[in-house]
Design a protein around this nucleic acid. Structure first.
Lengths: 191, 191
DNA sequence: TAGCACATGTAAGCTGTTACATGATTTA
DNA sequence: TAAATCATGTAACAGCTTACATGTGCTA
């Protein structure tokens, strides 16, 4: 049994928890996993087809429904594939693309003022993510299954930490320190 | 002037700071920016060609050098493009792909023991990144330009925070809490 | 009845990795 | 002299986004 494609991983999980149509999956992904696992229609619909061809999901089109909506569910093979992936011991993918960090990496080619402006933009970005998370939180807390709310807590902690870290760097840059000095003085603690 | 392609952004920066060949750029990227901005030969060499065609860089092949090495430098247009990108006020790209978080998101389909095993693997991953950063640090600290060391400090803080956060979650999971409970009790502080 | 949400799908194009091909130079 | 490193490049393929095409059902 070959590995699940990246998009297949979200799809199987989403179907497992009752998000049964491609449209549904997209809608839920855009409100939840997109912060660490995005998916677009261009990936979702072809992948649903492949998963059905491969026997991991089964699609049913209700003929009474005038909308040509196709409702998917996991087959036994699909359940097994999902659980196999969830419990696999290969190191999980972790990939980051952070343009702000790249700019800071090259910030010896900028003035301190220009660097400060970029740091501010980076902090704003993470604050905005925090705002989105806070807007989602009541729904996550009230949801029937608890794990997503746990992940959201992690996201709040993470982006809160990053925003705080940038705030500290900003203050030190404003006081005239270099980026390296400012970054070196930031000491994180978890309690 | 159209936007710099993702790989063009690292390339211009790297050339600016004296990494003059495709091979060089790849080597340095793999020791530094790859944690937040990766690049492969399949991107680098064609992009060097395009940048030269576009007049942002100039390549020189030393005929006395038996190795067919091509040494690049920034043209005035290239300097301007680099600086324009560095100081642009569009919100910088921030993309994360974290398979561990996706598994936790779906962990209601796992037993507590299986979830714990995944959290341990995630922590191990970040600890391993920390080890790599610590190995790099002396070189970053001794480098001629200071900004990369500042970024490394940020990386140490970030992955240290994440590893600590997972350690806390692990302990609470071991004590029998659910993921949502364990995550909710973790309170981050920066000082 | 207009507009929005529901619903599925595809085509074009960009970005990226992996693996291979080729050959020179340096070092053990 | 063998192996590692330096050095450039390409072909095949995987993955992803954006934009478009098409049509239904609900609601103000």
């Amino acid at each position: 049994m070959s590995e699940l494609s990246p998009t297949a991983r979200v799809i199987l999980g989403m179907i497992k928890f009752g998000n049964a149509t491609g449209y549904d999956i997209k809608r839920v992904v855009d409100k939840s996993t997109r912060f660490f696992w995005a998916a677009s229609y261009g990936q979702i619909y072809p992948e649903l087809q492949r998963l059905e061809d491969g026997g991991l999901i089964r699609g049913e089109a209700d003929p009474a429904d005038a909308r040509r909506r196709k409702t998917y569910s996991l087959t036994d093979a699909g359940e097994a594939a999902l659980h196999g992936w969830l419990t696999a011991d290969e190191p999980p993918t972790y990939e980051l693309r952070d343009e702000g960090l790249l700019k800071l990496f090259f910030s010896d080619a900028m003035t301190p003022e220009e660097t400060l402006a970029q740091v501010r933009a980076m902090r704003a970005r993470h604050e905005s993510v925090l705002d989105q998370f806070r807007a989602i939180e009541p729904f996550a807390a009230a949801a029937s299954r608890p794990a997503p709310h746990g992940v959201l807590q992690g996201g709040l902690a993470l982006h809160g930490f990053i925003a705080d870290w940038y705030r500290g760097v900003e203050e030190r840059l404003e006081a005239g320190e270099t980026l390296a000095e400012a970054a070196g003085h930031q000491i994180p603690v978890t309690r």
